[in-house]
């Protein structure tokens, strides 16, 4: 009797857990392909990619600077920028000849880049800018 109950309980709870996940996923709002968050985020960099070199290293600045990019959730935008611009290496630093700016707002306080000796080269909209280091 106990063995039978154990078998039934195991089947029941395994199936229940499985079907709960199934039901949860059915609740997802169907999205057309290419409209997920990451794909949309990547599209912000489409024009920038056209004028950046294919290889090499570029710098990165944002108005959302993280203390430690490994553990700070604020670094997610930086990770996504690297993911979008691969195979270009995006260094988390403004000390490079070319620097990618990734800002949340479209109007940016110039203090953010002038304090780092950066000169805007082009504004691609949606908070994406390209800078060069002043004096080069």
């Amino acid at each position: 009797m106990v063995a039978r109950a154990a078998i039934i309980l195991l089947i029941f709870f395994a199936l229940l857990s499985n079907l709960r996940l199934f039901r949860q996923t059915l609740n997802f709002a169907p999205k057309p392909l290419g409209t997920d968050e990451i794909t949309l985020y990547e599209k912000r960099f489409a024009e920038l990619k056209k004028i950046l070199p294919y290889h090499g290293v570029v710098g990165y600045i944002s108005n959302k600077q993280a203390e430690d990019i490994r553990f700070d959730a604020g670094a997610a935008e930086y990770y996504l920028t690297q993911y979008a611009l691969t195979p270009l290496v995006v260094a988390y630093s403004p000390n490079y000849p070319l620097v990618v700016g990734n800002f949340l707002q479209s109007v940016i306080d110039p203090e953010i880049y002038t304090s780092k000796d950066l000169v805007p080269l082009k504004d691609f909209g949606n908070g994406v800018l390209l800078f060069r280091r002043a004096g080069r």
Binding site: L19, F22, L33, D36
Partner: peptide, 22 residues
């Protein structure tokens, strides 16, 4: 139950993949 779970898991897997394709 195994085959029900298998089919449900496959559908769930596809929905999860469509939700986060990256």
């Amino acid at each position: 139950p195994f085959y029900i779970a298998l089919i449900a898991a496959m559908i769930a897997f596809m929905f999860l993949s469509l939700d986060s394709p990256h």
